[in-house]
Design a protein around this nucleic acid. Structure first.
Lengths: 223, 223
DNA sequence: CCTGAACGTGACGATCAATTCATGTTTGAC
DNA sequence: GTCAAACATGAATTGATCGTCACGTTCAGG
């Protein structure tokens, strides 16, 4: 039964849930795209400033005027390009997802085995966190602003992860086991290690973290 | 070097960080304890209502008047017992930590081996999440309200976890490896699986989750 | 039953941040 | 060079919540 779900689409019912329970947040908030070059540049200035400010101090304490001041534009300019503060956060989350996905993809394409990919991926992830400490503030706080975009963020990562694990399993490279459960377990590991060693402690050498972690999932705790 | 830190107190510098960077939030906000029985009951009514409301809708969107209305008391009554909304959240986080710790401790005391304890603990954790879905809203949002209490929450769990792993390692029950890294990796696993299968999907039987997860950390992914 | 300390109240003033909008400026197609 | 559309502005409006306070109520000890 669980195996059947796993084969079809283990996340289908999660997406359903979202749409059913949260119709508001699912509606895409659209402002017409900038028509000119100047407009596009201004929009990007605001988005970048929002990323910096929210990443530094958090979404709820950052005001629109903080963002526009940091961007060097007037208050009203914000509303030419975004519906609301929530709107800009949504976009930041999607952007962070794209950037991180790219970074991880770059880091793992050279990997010979699945376990190598895990090692390189985890290392690249914590490095990314150290380089972009705003990631957590943006993504984690989005949960309380627009749950749909938060879920989608992680479900997209989970889908990619699951596919990679299933491919490795098909090649006989790793043991059999629910790819969905493994994907979430491994994401959780990465997120917590990223918080602990990427945000809170940036002194510990990452080999001392990645080694034991990959060992844990590679060989287990059996003595 | 990492091994030395591990042996002394791997979290020491994290606590330091907190105190240095966040002196405000570390200051304990004290309101005199209720002097009478009636006072204590009212305080508890407010705390319980706050837990319900914040757990259901989130901290930032819940107003003091939401809380007092749910508690069935006047607005001003809130300020007899709490300094602010932040104050009540701090207390809720600590309380959640105590309850969860108790629940996990009850669930794992019968375990014969460390891996059994992992299995029972993970099962109990996700069951706790299903029974107390407000846990995540309260604990995770506390990160954006009072980072000190959030860190302490997880660092306390990490300390307990680390001790258990070190004891098991000393007994030769599990392989050698950084207890600190393992503790954070395992917490992350639990939190993410709790979110995926405790909050977002309450239909999947927990054996289908706990089995594969414990297998992953017990035997690893080696084919 | 008296009395003061503890508790309870909800209307209200102060504050603060999100949007709006009337007005001014820039751009680029023709 | 003209002109209409796009863009930019920040003061003013709006709306919401926090936290206070002056005034009642309850209760336990004397």
């Amino acid at each position: 039964m669980a195996a059947i779900i796993d084969r079809i689409d283990p996340q289908a019912q999660l997406y359903d849930d979202l749409v059913i329970s949260d119709p508001m947040t699912a509606r895409s908030q659209t402002k017409p795209q900038p028509k000119t070059d100047r407009g596009e540049r201004t929009r990007q200035k605001i988005l970048a400033a929002a990323g910096r400010e929210i990443g530094k101090r958090g979404f709820s304490v950052t005001s629109i005027s903080d963002i526009t001041a940091a961007a060097g534009v007037g208050q009203g300019t914000f509303y030419i390009y975004f519906q609301s503060k929530e709107d800009v956060l949504r976009e930041l989350v999607l952007q962070m997802g794209r950037e991180l996905r790219q970074h991880l993809s770059d880091a793992t394409t050279g990997a010979k085995t699945r376990l190598d990919a895990e090692r390189e991926g985890l290392l690249a992830f914590i490095e990314f966190v150290r380089a972009n400490p705003g990631l957590y503030r943006i993504v984690e706080e989005s949960q309380f602003v627009d749950e749909a975009v938060y879920r989608r963020y992680y479900m997209d990562f989970a889908a990619t992860y699951r596919a990679a694990l299933q491919a490795a399993e098909a090649r006989g490279e790793i043991s059999r086991g629910s790819a969905e459960v493994r994907a979430w377990a491994l994401m959780g590991m990465a997120v917590f290690l990223g918080q602990r060693y990427g945000l809170w402690d940036v002194a510990t050498p990452l080999e001392d973290v990645v080694g034991p972690a990959v060992d844990l999932i590679g060989r287990g705790m059996q003595p």
